[in-house]
Design a protein around this nucleic acid. Structure first.
Lengths: 250, 250
DNA sequence: CGGACCCTTGACGACTTTCAACGTGTGTGG
DNA sequence: CCACACACGTTGAAAGTCGTCAAGGGTCCG
C-alpha cells in the first residue's frame, strides 16, 4: 500500500474529529501542499513507532494533537518506576497539563507510526483571543482532558482486576466507535501488555490472566493484540462490581 | 468569635491566591458591601458543612472557586458505590471537567462551613475574550486542574497503602504551606476517614491502620483529624516504593 | 540457530479486604 | 443527670486477590 495515500486518508479522518478544527484547514489538500500553506495550517511531523514526541521536564512551547497514531504519556518517578498516565488517540489534545508549570510532566511516545500537529502556545493564545469560537472549543478540549483523567481515576477505583480490564476495553470500543461511526466488535491494541498493565495499575501477569479468563468465559477473543468482543453485554456487566460478581458466579 | 469577621479574614487570604484574581475585586470591602457591587465581583454564597454545591448530572451554568472551606467532589456509580475524585482547597477551580458534556460529572460537597465564588460560564468566556491576560490565567487554571488529577493517578499508582497515605499527607502539607507561606507541621483534616479512604482507594480500616503504624514509628502524631508531622524526612522517604521498604525495615 | 522480546501459565506469599468487636464522643430524650 | 442511640475511629483475625518469582512457548531478526 502506498504510505502516502494511507497517511492522507488517516489525516482526513482525524481532522474531522480534531479539537482544533476551528483553527486548522487541512481538508482535502495533499500533505506536500499542506506544508506550504501559511495561514492557519499547523506544523506537522511524522514519528515512527516508539519515537518520543516530548520529554518530561522539557520546557513547553507547543501543545500537540495526534492526527494519526496512538500515543502514550508516561512519567518516570525518582526511583525509576514508569507509570503510564494516558493513551491519546487521533484528535485528542496532549500537553495541556504541562502549561501550569510550563514544563512537561511526562514523556510522550508514539505507539505506532504517527502524524502529529504541533500548536505553538503563542498561536494558541492569539487564536483564542481573536476567535471566541475557538476559545470556546479550547475550553471544551481542556474539559475533555479533565473528564478523561477523571475516568481514569474511576477506572483505577475499580477494585478487581477484571473490572478494570473490562472498563478499559469498553472505553476503547467507544473511542473506536466514535471515530468510525459504527458499532465495532474488534479491537486492535496499539500498546503492549506492559503499557496496558501500567495504565491499569496491574502487573502484566494479572492482565494476561484476566484476558485468559475472559477468553475462557467466552466473552473475549484474544490473539495477541487483536481482541474480539464476543459478548458485549457481559463485558459491560463486569465493569461494575455488582455485575462482576454475579457474572463471575454464573 | 464573630463569624462575620472570621469570614472576612478567610476571604482576604483566599483571594490573594485565587485563580480568578484578574477578574475579581473583592479586596478589603465587607461581605455585605460586596453583594451590591456589580462589575467584576462574582456572586458569592456560603454553605454549611455537608451542604451540596452542585449535583452530578445537573446542567452546568457556572464554575466555582472556593473562597473559604474545603470541598470534595464525588461520583456515585450505577451500583451506588461512591468514589471521591478530589478535594478542593480555597482558590482552586471546580467544575471545569463538566463543560465538555455540559453536565456535572460529580457531586460537590462542602466539608466545612464554606464560602464560594460562582462564575457564570458566560461571564467566564466574555472576560476571557476581552482580557488576554485573564484568558491566559484561565488556561493555566485548567492546566493546574489537569496536573492535580495526574498527581492523583500517580498517587493511586503507589502500590502500598503507606506510600499512598504518605504522599497524600505530603500533598496536604504543601498545599497548606503554599497558602500560609511558612513551613507547617500540623495538619487538620477537613475530611473523615471514609472520604480519605475513598480518595486513596483503600478501606477505612487500612487508612486507620496506616495512621497507627506511622504513629508507632514516631513519624506522625494522630489525634482524630489533627495530625502532626514529627519526622518529615521519613514521611517523604515513604512516598516512593524504595524509600518505603527501607524505612519499614529500619 | 541463537538471542531478544513479548506473552502466557503455575505456585507461593504478602498485602489488603472483609467481617467482627470494641471504644469514644456527641446529641437526644426520658 | 443519665441512658441510649448513633456516627466515627480503632483493633483483631480470617480470607481472598494480586504481586512476586520462575519457567516455558512463540515470533522476529541478526
Amino acid at each position: 500500500m502506498e504510505p502516502r495515500l494511507f497517511q492522507t486518508l488517516l489525516e482526513q479522518r482525524a481532522c474531522s474529529d480534531c479539537v482544533l478544527k476551528p483553527m486548522c484547514k487541512p481538508a482535502i489538500v495533499r500533505p506536500d501542499e499542506l506544508e506550504r500553506m501559511s495561514d492557519h495550517v499547523l506544523p506537522r511531523r511524522s514519528l515512527s513507532a516508539g519515537e518520543r514526541l516530548y520529554e518530561q521536564g522539557q520546557k513547553v512551547r507547543s501543545l500537540f494533537v495526534s492526527q494519526a497514531g496512538v500515543f502514550k504519556t508516561e512519567t518516570s518517578a525518582a526511583d525509576g518506576r514508569l507509570q503510564v498516565l494516558g493513551f491519546h488517540f487521533p484528535g485528542e489534545l496532549m500537553g495541556l497539563e504541562a502549561i501550569a508549570g510550563m514544563r512537561f510532566r511526562a514523556d510522550a511516545f508514539a505507539l505506532e507510526p504517527a502524524v502529529i500537529c504541533e500548536i505553538p502556545l503563542s498561536a494558541l493564545e492569539t487564536a483564542a483571543s481573536r476567535q471566541p469560537e475557538f476559545q470556546h472549543h479550547l475550553l471544551q478540549a481542556a474539559g475533555s482532558c479533565l473528564a478523561d483523567q477523571q475516568e481514569h481515576v474511576e477506572l483505577l477505583a475499580m477494585r478487581q482486576a477484571d473490572e478494570r480490564v473490562a472498563l478499559f476495553l469498553i472505553g476503547l470500543l467507544q473511542r473506536a466507535e466514535r471515530i468510525s461511526g459504527k458499532e465495532e466488535a474488534s479491537i486492535h491494541l496499539a500498546m503492549g501488555r506492559t503499557d496496558l498493565a501500567s495504565y491499569l495499575c496491574l502487573t502484566i501477569e494479572t492482565v494476561s490472566r484476566t484476558f485468559s479468563s475472559l477468553r475462557d468465559a467466552g466473552i473475549l477473543g484474544v490473539q495477541g493484540r487483536h481482541l474480539t468482543v464476543l459478548d458485549r453485554q457481559r463485558l459491560i456487566g463486569m465493569s461494575g462490581s455488582e455485575g462482576a460478581k454475579s457474572t463471575r458466579r454464573a
